[in-house]
Design a protein around this nucleic acid. Sequence first.
DNA 1: CGGTATCCTGAAAGATACTG
DNA 2: CAGTATCTTTCAGGATACCG
Lengths: 160, 160
Amino acid sequence: MGSVHWQDQDTSNCSIGRTWDIMGKPWVLLILREVFRGLHRFDDIRRHLGISEPVLSRRLHGLVEEGVLERRPYRTPGNRTRDEYHLTEAGLELFPLLVALKAWGDRHLAGPEGPATVHEHQGCGRPVVLELRCTADHRLEGVEGVEARSGPAARALARE
Amino acid sequence: MGSVHWQDQDTSNCSIGRTWDIMGKPWVLLILREVFRGLHRFDDIRRHLGISEPVLSRRLHGLVEEGVLERRPYRTPGNRTRDEYHLTEAGLELFPLLVALKAWGDRHLAGPEGPATVHEHQGCGRPVVLELRCTADHRLEGVEGVEARSGPAARALARE
DNA sequence: CGGTATCCTGAAAGATACTG
DNA sequence: CAGTATCTTTCAGGATACCG
């Protein structure tokens, strides 16, 4: 069978689209930002974001189901145990996504004062940046130099 | 008190929120994915995504306005000139964002066949990856080792 | 405090028809 | 081909009330 022409590929099975199906819902990325910042409890997140309870509840459930967050029981003295929401291994791997979002915003949308938060390498104290490189350790300056090719799961686009 | 619609919330002080205000709208990232893939014309994008014309039109206008895309006139023989949509400098800088999205999806949501597209370093042929490092060139393995601190534009959270 | 159930509402996606 | 205008409809977020 002939190879699929690159522009006729069906993108519905694309990883960007799939990830987007989870992360693209309203509030999700903002919720994750708060969890990365160290907020783990329902009401803390709710108050910081100004999100309504039902939506926050729904989103947290969804993220637990997707394996991005996990419940972790805790109890404050005198109260029954409750659940905190923490990032799973998979969730922690979303950090670059947030960094990418933040980096672009810092560069193109920041106010005159600069960013509200900075990420530093602990100990070293230098700013953290995202870098594109290949596995042979060549640094890439941007999209030029990158070639997109059909992968194993490429499918042809259905004709109309 | 006037309620704040979720898209009008005060994200003005956070780069993630600001970027999200643009990129978080439905279809936007998928549209950009197509443009990065080399699709530049209205109908091509429309057919590949299955998006409705009014929405595509609105999104393209928005992205032009935000400085992410620019119109570039072209003409096919015998027809009047039309516009293609191309990434601006700022738009090209969104590439890491798409890579981050794709990388996470490849790792956590891919089917058994693997990814539908692969990005390679041109010439070298090795896969392209996104790496977190600090400006002193220390490679970071993830969020551990990253310290988030208040930046110049930090503001206190308004009391309720 | 940490949610769930219900209802209401509005924004925005899609279908369709039309235009240059 | 590249859109715009209009209309309909759906869906999801917010308010509110309530429960363990």
